[in-house]
Structure formats: C-alpha cells, structure tokens
Amino acid sequence: MDASTTPRPIAPDLAALPDSAADAAFVVWARQRSVPGASSPTLAVAYSGGADSTALLCAAARHWAGPLIALHVHHGLQAAADGFEHHCRERCLAWGIPFDTQRVDARHAVGQSPEEIARQVRYATLALAARRADAGRVVLAQHADDQIETLLLALSRGAGLAGLAAMPARFERHGMVFERPLLALTAAEIRSGLQAQGLDWIEDPTNRDTGYTRNRIRLQLLPVLEQVFPGFRTTFARSAAHAAQGQDLLDELARADLAEVGCPPRIAALQGLTQARQANVLRHWLKQQGGRSGSAAQLEALLRQVAACTTRGHRIHLKVGQGHVVREGPCLAWQAGPL
C-alpha cells in the first residue's frame, strides 16, 4: 500500500463524528486535487478557531490523506487574541494535528483600512508559514455569505468586473496557492453541521461590531435580502461567476494588446486602440508594475494625458496607485514611490 492510499491516523473522537455539509464539500474538493498513485502533499489549514475554520479543520483532519498542519495568525489587535491562540492549540493537541502559530503586528496607520492591513499581513504570514511547513497549498474557510458580503462591498465602491467577481475559489499570493473549499456553503449550514457534531468554536467579539462595514452587511443587510430575495445567495454567486468569466476575457485581451503596444507601452501604439481597450491594457500593465491599477479618476486622467500626447515635448507625470506614471521618450514608464 503506497503513501497515497495509507490513511493518515485520525483521532478517535474525530472519526466517530457524523458527516456534515463541510465534510461533503471538502471531500469533493480533495478528490479534484488527488493524483492517482501519488502521495498527498502537506495541506495547511488557516485556523482561527471560529466556526468556519473549525469546520474546515475538522473536515481536513477526517478526509485529507496526507500530512496536515494548522496555521494560526495572532494579529495582536485585541486582548482576546491570546485566548483564541490557546483554544486553537488545545484543539489541535486533542486532534493530533501539528499546530503553528505566528504572532504579527497588524496595526494600521492613519488613513489605512484596518481590515485591509490585517488581511495583507495574514496572507503574507500564512504563505511564509506554509512554505516553512513544505505545504503545497493553504485552504481558507470563507463561505457563501462571505462571498456575498464581498460582492456587496464591491458594488458599494463602484467596482469593475474584477471586484464584482468577488473571491475566487483558487488564487496565488506571495508564492503560495490558496483555495476555498467551503465557498458554496452558507454560514448557517456550517454552524448547523458543527452543532450536530457537538463541536464548539470561538465567537470573535469584533464580529458584532457594526463599526465595520462588513459586519453591518452581515448583521443588518443580509437578513433583509433573505426576506426579499430568498434565493439571493445562489443568484448573487452566479452573477459573481459571470463577472469572473468576463474579467478573464478582459485579462486575455489585455495580454494580447500589451504584446502589441509593448511593455512599457508605446504611446503611439496606445493611441491606436479604442479608449476602452486603452483603459483595459493600462490597468493590466499598472497591476504588473505596482500591484494596483489606481482609482477610476487616476486612470481617466491618464487616458486624457495619453490622448493629448501629440508632441515630442509633451510631459506626462501622474500619481497612480502607490507610484507615478511618467513619459520616457515614446513610452510610458512606472516609477514606484514619491518623486
């Protein structure tokens, strides 16, 4: 019997649990990633101790054939964080799962989004810890309600297709693959499964703080949507999937156009494209350079400058994202940071 078919030891109390919706979703996900005759790589589970990550860790412990490790990020943002870490460590000890905790400073500066900074630090930390554990991927416990919240936030900000596509089931960041096996499940399904299994979890007190927009959506808006549009999770998710497909096509067109206009883009070649294609290829190029394409207003200003650039002496110098776009001879150029 080879390593791929040798079952990984499962704690007796885990093996005796009834199957849940999270188990079923994880099994489908795991089967899609199995290679016949090959051993399963180490799987890293992002484990906060909350209901969603508890369900994911439980499912992975019961159904992942290969090595497993739980990764916990201690953000240092609230006094209760020490208790979260202790709960997670004890749970992993009881289940026989290796546990790795990383303490980080996720405090935000004035003008920064505390949620965004914590998210950036979390992903970077998880990726580093997963590489140290020789893990092939990190699985995250976001679910259908999280997906809807992300979509509604994107709508409130006037996002384009990339934002309306919400959260992908798979993505790469910091050199690591991240996946979301529970994305089709609702929060209610996950919690119902945990209750049937007799498992407890941590309730983060900040999840009730309506000072955060995402919490207001979850606590105040989703219940109303449920009353008015009972099947909104399915239909909204379908719209997000359509947006993702449309964004894939725009990305494909941008790659083809960038190959034609050059990298860095030649201004004359850009001017030969329609304005919509100019905007699309410039977004793509800017993301390659600085990781962000800037605001809609910044991109519109750049398009006006490109259109007005008809003389050799015309100067372009615009702040976009965390840097500047300037003219260097016949081309645009990206300069990171302040000038």
Rank of each mutant, 00 (worst) to 15 (best):
residue 194 L to N: 04
residue 58 C to Y: 06
residue 137 R to A: 13
residue 164 L to Y: 12
residue 44 A to C: 04
residue 2 D to G: 07
residue 308 A to Y: 02
residue 202 I to L: 05
residue 216 R to N: 06
residue 61 A to K: 09
residue 75 H to F: 14
residue 79 A to E: 08
residue 238 R to Y: 05
residue 184 A to Q: 05
residue 4 S to N: 12
residue 269 A to F: 06
residue 294 G to W: 02
residue 322 Q to Y: 11
residue 10 I to K: 14
residue 231 G to H: 05
residue 293 S to V: 11
residue 218 R to E: 02
residue 149 E to F: 04
residue 128 L to H: 11
residue 327 R to A: 03
residue 271 Q to G: 04
residue 223 P to V: 00
residue 308 A to I: 03
residue 58 C to L: 06
residue 203 E to Q: 14
residue 1 M to I: 13
residue 180 R to Q: 13
residue 20 S to F: 04
residue 45 V to H: 07
residue 238 R to C: 13
residue 29 W to K: 00
residue 303 L to Y: 02
residue 146 D to I: 07
residue 154 A to T: 13
residue 76 G to T: 06
residue 293 S to W: 08
residue 301 A to S: 15
residue 292 R to G: 14
residue 312 R to A: 14
residue 296 A to R: 10
residue 111 G to S: 09
residue 55 A to S: 08
residue 239 S to H: 11
residue 84 F to L: 14
residue 114 P to R: 05
residue 157 R to F: 07
residue 180 R to M: 13
residue 327 R to L: 13
residue 200 D to C: 07
residue 35 V to P: 02
residue 317 H to C: 13
residue 69 I to A: 11
residue 133 A to E: 05
residue 277 R to I: 08
residue 257 D to E: 15
residue 127 A to H: 00
residue 100 D to R: 15
residue 202 I to H: 03
residue 217 I to D: 06
residue 75 H to R: 14
residue 330 P to G: 13
residue 301 A to R: 13
residue 151 L to D: 02
residue 58 C to S: 01
residue 280 N to G: 11
residue 56 L to S: 03
residue 81 A to G: 01
residue 194 L to F: 06
residue 107 R to Q: 04
residue 155 L to G: 12
residue 270 L to W: 01
residue 9 P to R: 07
residue 318 L to V: 07
residue 128 L to D: 08
residue 182 L to S: 02
residue 228 V to D: 06
residue 297 A to G: 11
residue 50 G to P: 07
residue 250 L to W: 12
residue 4 S to I: 13
residue 35 V to N: 10
residue 141 A to C: 12
residue 311 T to W: 05
residue 149 E to R: 12
residue 94 A to D: 03
residue 233 R to E: 01
residue 38 A to C: 07
residue 91 R to A: 00
residue 118 A to C: 07
residue 150 T to V: 08
residue 101 T to K: 00
residue 106 A to D: 15
residue 307 A to I: 10
residue 290 G to K: 03
residue 12 P to F: 02
residue 213 T to L: 14
residue 5 T to H: 10
residue 288 Q to G: 15
residue 130 A to V: 15
residue 331 C to N: 04
residue 6 T to E: 09
residue 4 S to E: 13
residue 202 I to R: 02
residue 229 F to G: 02
residue 102 Q to T: 11
residue 153 L to T: 09
residue 146 D to N: 10
residue 256 A to C: 04
residue 98 P to L: 01
residue 239 S to N: 09
residue 334 W to K: 10
residue 292 R to A: 10
residue 269 A to K: 00
residue 315 R to P: 04
residue 323 G to V: 01
residue 283 R to D: 09
residue 183 L to N: 00
residue 335 Q to W: 15
residue 293 S to E: 12
residue 143 H to I: 08
residue 219 L to S: 01
residue 17 L to T: 03
residue 103 R to K: 08
residue 193 G to T: 01
residue 251 D to S: 11
residue 244 A to M: 02
residue 3 A to N: 09
residue 214 R to M: 10
residue 193 G to A: 00
residue 86 H to V: 08
residue 317 H to F: 01
residue 44 A to L: 02
residue 74 H to R: 04
residue 337 G to K: 10
residue 51 A to P: 10
residue 197 Q to V: 06
residue 26 F to E: 09
residue 309 C to A: 15
residue 324 H to Q: 14
residue 29 W to T: 06
residue 277 R to W: 01
residue 157 R to G: 15
